[in-house]
């Protein structure tokens, strides 16, 4: 059966660390980083990139449009 594999690219400098993407992600791929960006925000990142299915829910709810999502069919 074909599986979808996704990946997210997050513009960490523009991320305000609101965490809305983190709670939206159905596969718990995302988390807020321990370190901060130059504005002092704990930016979002793919803590478990292998679980991403490319659903784009994180990008769709991101108020600052910092997430770009890609996906491919594998297998």
């Amino acid at each position: 059966m074909a599986k979808i594999k996704g990946a997210v690219v997050i513009d960490k400098e523009r991320c305000k660390g609101c965490e809305v993407c983190v709670v939206t992600c159905p596969t718990q791929t995302l988390a807020l980083a321990v370190e901060v960006n130059s504005k002092g925000y704990h930016f979002s990142y793919a803590a478990f990139p292998e679980t991403c299915i490319g659903c784009a829910n994180c990008a769709v709810v991101c108020p600052d449009g910092v997430i770009t999502v890609y996906k491919v069919k594998v297998g």
Binding site: K5, G6, A7, V9, G54, A56, A59, V60, G65, I67, T68, V69, Y70, K71, V72
Partner: peptide
Amino acid sequence: DIIKPENLAYTKS
């Protein structure tokens, strides 16, 4: 391999 333009699923307008 995934983050190629042809695989784009979502980006801001």
